[in-house]
Design a protein around this nucleic acid. Structure first.
Lengths: 233, 233
DNA sequence: GCAGTGCAAACTGTTGACGATCGACAATCC
DNA sequence: GGATTGTCGATCGTCAACAGTTTGCACTGC
């Protein structure tokens, strides 16, 4: 049972070591910091202390700085020289523009889906709509929220290219800088899912114009619900 | 003439010092490396040698690494662990998607411009079209190219929000990874500018649908010209 | 002649340290 | 009493050095 012939064998970190062969510390730091930001663990507007983050992740400041620099390009943080990096806080106007852009991308994706749907498009979307319906009836807001994300991700995955998907995802992360987990109300869930069904119906009917219109209307509806709940003016 | 009372006054670097007060070495490195990439000085697919870049810029490897991380998030470079960063080379399919996204954004901007044009929209665009017409008649391809960029930038500046402009710019930089300065032919210039005029006419007429259609057709025309010249299949 | 092996150089990934700058607080002067 | 200035602590920006890995090349053996 004793292992001979390898006296100075490094301690076996099977998973971690294999992980570090593929991903650098910078990438895991970026992923973790991004998670902390979009999840709201680090609130918008707050400062990013480099050595605190480094200590938290058990690494040096170098990779942390590189990770933060990447997030800066992505638009999640802003940096002031000799002062530090802050989690970006976006204004209501900027949030509205993000909704517009998401509506644009979603509309385009749905238009293409209606014109030339890939195999298994309708069953997949239909299944998600059904599950959302069940979640709405059960007043399962978190479940509905997750399924909603899946539905929109599926729309772009099926109807748009990889670059458009990346932009859409980035916009979503940016949007999280404003709204801390949109509170979903029961009637809003049903309203929202009815729009989902409309999108699906247009796609199923092969009507690109209607699909685009339904998708844009749905995202704009989300924008309206967002505006009504967050900016009472 | 002798300067008293300030024996250890630092050497006067009026511009550079003021510059470094505002911009860190990382930012200037990022700007310079990005310039080298989009200008084609560093061809797509080639490796980015960190210490060579650092030596070229007269700085250390730290800021260079941070700058490269930013460009990685932006999509201009890809990094392989323990191997280095490479200037991203995009496929023809990816380039086509970039054209589609630019068409989408430009169409949206023009639709809004036609619906609610900001002050001085038509004169500004009209002036650019006129100058492009002169450049086309003079067979001034570089001049036309620059004016064309100005025209499209003006469309987005006037008709879209700041986030959309940023996305559009990023897509343009990414597109430069494929085509090395699209060679503009005389007849293509006139064809292109006729489409510019059509966009302007639709905006002037206040017809959002026509404006969007004209803009999308124009960018898609550029995509078609690009596809015809680059992928002879 | 060719495949395989071992070594060496180059480069990347990470760390620690140093200098510089900013904000806050206290002491001083008007 | 208020404003200004000086000092201190904290933190950022940058650099140089170390460790690990990859790559290329020469050498050996078949």
């Amino acid at each position: 049972m004793l292992r001979a012939m390898s006296p100075d064998q490094p301690p076996d970190l099977p998973a971690e070591l294999l992980l570090l062969r593929t991903r650098s510390l910078t990438s895991v730091a970026a992923q973790e910091i991004e998670r902390l930001i979009v999840s709201g663990a680090i609130p918008a507007g707050s400062r990013l202390n480099e050595q605190a983050l480094a200590a938290r992740l058990g690494i040096s400041r170098g990779p942390v700085r590189e990770a933060v620099r990447g997030l800066e390009r992505q638009g999640l943080v802003v940096t002031v020289v000799n002062q530090g990096s802050y989690v970006r806080s976006i204004s209501a106007e900027e949030a509205l523009e993000l909704y517009d852009l998401r509506a644009l991308l979603t509309g385009q994706a749905c238009e293409r889906l209606a014109a030339a749907p890939p195999p298994a498009t309708v069953p997949r979307l239909s299944g998600l709509v059904t599950r959302m319906e069940r979640a709405a009836e059960a007043d399962d807001a978190p479940g509905y929220y997750a399924l909603n994300l899946d539905f929109h991700a599926a729309l772009l995955e099926l109807g748009a290219g990889p670059r458009a998907q990346r932009i859409y995802d980035d916009l979503g992360k940016e949007l999280n800088l404003f709204r801390r987990r949109a509170l979903v109300q029961p009637e809003k869930m049903r309203e929202s899912n009815a729009e989902h069904a409309a999108i699906l119906a247009a796609i199923h009917a092969g009507d690109p114009v209607a699909a685009r219109a339904a998708a844009e209307a749905h995202v704009q509806g989300g924008k309206r619900r967002f505006a009504a709940s967050h900016t009472p003016l």
